[in-house]
Design a protein around this nucleic acid. Sequence first.
DNA 1: GTCCAGGGCCTAC
DNA 2: GTAGGCCATGGA
Length: 221
Amino acid sequence: MEQIRHFYSLLYEKFGDLGWWPADEPFEVMVGAILTQNTNWRNVEKSIEGLKKAGVLSPHGLVQIDRESLAGLIKSSGYFNQKALKLKRFVMWLMEYTDGEISNLGEVSTFDLRAELLSVKGIGPETADDILLYALDRPVFVIDSYTYRIAARHGWVPPESDYNELSELFGSAFPGDIEVYKNFHAGIVEVGKRFCRKRDPLCEDCPGKPLLIDGKPLEFI
DNA sequence: GTCCAGGGCCTAC
DNA sequence: GTAGGCCATGGA
């Protein structure tokens, strides 16, 4: 817990406020959250631009466009057939659940809303929490593979920890602090790219080794 | 040519 | 219930 607070102070010292999530409006965050699944953000940006140009980056726009055309517009994000389907299912849910008005979500508790999002096929815990935190300003801590790698390799959590345990642990380091939640996750992604990139979260090169930021061990920055 | 990116679902043991 | 396969483009 104390280590986690320290980790954030180091990230903040180094990166300051990273201004996440980069988007013009909440709906764009929601779309981006789905498109960026296991995908480099630069590839997602191209897709977002394409959707804007086509004039379909809105709940109504995505309901109207056919799945094949949508897949063509988001090609750069990879998994375009799957993601076109996911976006379709998401906006269908959104239109029905909110009656087409995103502000209606304001009446729903975070707990219920999270369960609703997770019930949409194609939206898992990370995507749901991206939407809750960055589009809807709800106090949830987003966990991604970088967070898990860093926490597990530093021994902050046991390797078998699941998403919810990590989310609760990181969240409880700054209870309910939405702005810190937003910037902490952003900082983790930023530094995660510079950490060991191997997929294996417990690769043998890493246990016990500190996270390096610009070649310096985490503790000594 | 190989690896992997701001995951999640489905299938087989 | 869980490891493994699948989705797919684009940059390093």
